[in-house]
Design a protein around this nucleic acid. Structure first.
Lengths: 76, 76
DNA sequence: CTTGAATAATCCCGATCGGGAATATGTTTA
DNA sequence: TAAACATATTCCCGATCGGGATTATTCAAG
């Protein structure tokens, strides 16, 4: 019924980007961020700026919000 | 059944902090971040680092995740 | 109103983000 | 295979974050 699982931000962006047949460069331009940032974001760099992440998520109609902390016994 | 509404990150942190009768300094120490950061976060500074926000949210068992973009016709 | 605590605003400054470009790896596709 | 494209990695470097302290402002009691 539900996804039951919180996807990683990076994984989400990558999935949606590919679903839209976009390249990192295209998504970057669409979102107004650099290509390198898209790459780092998709690969889970932790210390990114909230506002820049939101620029990317906005392309998909999403944003960062508060969710239950994921369980710690996930592998990366 | 649900809250039906996505609270702002800053508002959430402030509410929970007060609910726990903590001062910004105490929360900061608990989360391992500075007092100034807690203050700025609560007041909605947009360009904060994801990892640092997560340190604060972790105190409350939460973290940043993907949610539907909030409607734009909210006042700040 | 006065006093004290909490929060906000400002300062200095080291650390690091992120853009852009170049290069190195992958990864398709012909 | 080879060529073309996508992604990852590295570089320089300006911009800004965030810590900590200080000061100003706001707020809560008494």
């Amino acid at each position: 019924m539900d996804k039951g699982f919180e996807e990683t931000i990076g994984a989400f962006v990558r999935d949606r980007r590919k679903a839209g047949r976009m390249t990192q460069r295209e998504l970057g331009e669409l979102a107004g961020v650099g290509t390198r940032f898209v790459s780092e974001l998709e690969r889970g760099k932790p210390s990114v700026r909230l506002s820049v992440v939101n620029k990317v998520l906005a392309v998909f109609g999403k944003s960062l919000g508060i969710v239950d902390a994921p369980r710690q016994d996930e592998q990366s």
